[in-house]
Write a protein that binds this DNA or RNA. Structure first.
Lengths: 117, 117
DNA sequence: TACTAACATCGTTTATCGACGATAAACGAA
DNA sequence: TTCGTTTATCGTCGATAAACGATGTTAGTA
C-alpha cells in the first residue's frame, strides 16, 4: 500500500525492463540477436538475407533493437557494423535471474495459499 | 546459409523465446511478476490493488502471463492462487545468459569489422 | 557529374495491443 | 434458491506494431 517513495523509481525500472522485453518480443528480432551472437564480428546487410524479410523491415527491427540498447551500430564504410550490446539486456536478465533463483529455493511445490483473512 | 535442417527447429525456438518476451513486454506485467516474486505465497485479487488498473485489465494481463507459462493459477475457493512459474522463463533466460557470457568474453570493444569481401 | 551500393525513412495498409465498463460464470454461505 | 464475492470474458475504442514498396540519403567509384 502507498509506498509512494520508491514507487516512482520502481515504476521507471519496470518500464525499462518492459522496454527491453518488448524489443525481444518478435521472432525476427530474436533471430537477429542469435545471428549476432553466432558471429562475434560485425556484419553488414547479411542480416537481411538471414531473416528473409524485406530490407526495410529488417532495418526497422534493427532500429527497435538499437533504441532499446540491445544492439549498437557503427558506421563503417557503406555498411553499418552491428553488434550486440549485452549491457542493454542486463535489466531484464537480472529480473529473470531473481525469479529463477527464488523459484529454485522457495517455491518447491505450488506453495500454500493462506486463505486466512 | 541454407541450413534447412535445423531451420524449422530454430524458428520454433525463436517464436517460443519471443512469446515469453512478449509476455513481459508491459510494465504492468513486470510489476505483477515482481509482486509475485516478493510474495512467495499466493495471492488473490490483491494484484488489482497493487497494479492500480481495472480488474478486467489485470485479469487480461494475468491471462497473458498464464498463456506464456510465466505464471500459473490454481483455483482456491472463490479466489485464484497465482504464483510464478520460473520454468516458463527459462528459454528467454538462457538466451540472455548466452549473450551476457559472450559479451564478457569476446566482445571487449566494439570488435573489428571485416570490411573484407 | 553520373552511377552504384548499403541503409534509413516515408507512407500506407492490416493486425494486434491495452484499457475500460458491462456482464457472465463459478461457488461458498445464508 | 438467492446473495455476495471473485475472477473471466465480451465488446469497443484509440493507439501501436508489423510489413511492404517506394523514395531518400550518404559515400565511394568511374
Amino acid at each position: 500500500m502507498s509506498a509512494s517513495t520508491t514507487n516512482s523509481i520502481e515504476a521507471a525500472e519496470e518500464v525499462t525492463v518492459a522496454n527491453v522485453a518488448r524489443a525481444l518480443a518478435h521472432p525476427a528480432r530474436i533471430r537477429i540477436v542469435r545471428f549476432l551472437l553466432s558471429r562475434k564480428n560485425c556484419i553488414g546487410g547479411d542480416i537481411v538475407e538471414e531473416i528473409g524479410l524485406a530490407q526495410s523491415t529488417v532495418s526497422e527491427h534493427l532500429r527497435i533493437l538499437k533504441a532499446a540498447g540491445v544492439v549498437s551500430g557503427e558506421i563503417e564504410r557503406p555498411r553499418i557494423c552491428y553488434s550486440l550490446n549485452p549491457a542493454g539486456l542486463a535489466p531484464l536478465a537480472e529480473l529473470l535471474r531473481e525469479v529463477l533463483e527464488t523459484g529454485d529455493e522457495a517455491r518447491t511445490d505450488h506453495a500454500q495459499c493462506e486463505p486466512g483473512s
